[in-house]
């Protein structure tokens, strides 16, 4: 743990909190993905991981790396922006594919349970 050991106390607490929060949210999203009963409910679950789950882990990473290398590392921002922009595209396409498939199978998506 090269960068982590030298963190000042305040920063260490912030990093630990952000990591726990982010991974818990991602885990909850995955739990929802398995437990929710209808497809259209499940489509909401991964957004937990991609919105605040990813954001807080990336923020923790930014804090650690800017401290360790003594320069602000904006690499994580690129991943964050990328996730922010691409997740909706993927989810929308999956949602539309689901709608399309259930319609062409002759069932109304509203009847899903």
């Amino acid at each position: 743990m090269t960068g982590l050991e030298t963190l000042p106390p305040g920063l260490a607490v912030a990093v630990a909190g952000l990591l726990v929060l982010g991974s818990t949210l991602t885990l909850l999203g995955a739990v929802g993905l398995v437990r929710l009963r209808s497809f259209y409910d499940r489509i909401h679950a991964p957004t937990l991981g991609t919105s605040w789950g990813a954001a807080s882990i990336l923020l923790a990473s930014i804090l650690v790396w800017s401290w360790a290398e003594d320069r602000t590392v904006a690499h994580e921002l690129v991943i964050g922006v990328f996730l922010m922009v691409t997740t909706p595209v993927t989810l929308m396409l999956i949602g539309r594919a689901a709608l399309h498939r259930s319609r062409s199978a002759g069932e109304a998506p509203e009847d899903e349970t």
Partner: peptide
């Protein structure tokens, strides 16, 4: 708007009809 609604957990943008301007949204 699609980006905002989908990135926010709890709402998912499914379909937007260009001609009528009606959006089909799924709410958790």
């Amino acid at each position: 708007l699609a980006l905002i609604l989908t990135a926010t957990p709890g709402t998912a943008w499914l379909e937007h009809d260009r001609a009528t301007g009606v959006l089909l949204l799924h709410v958790f």
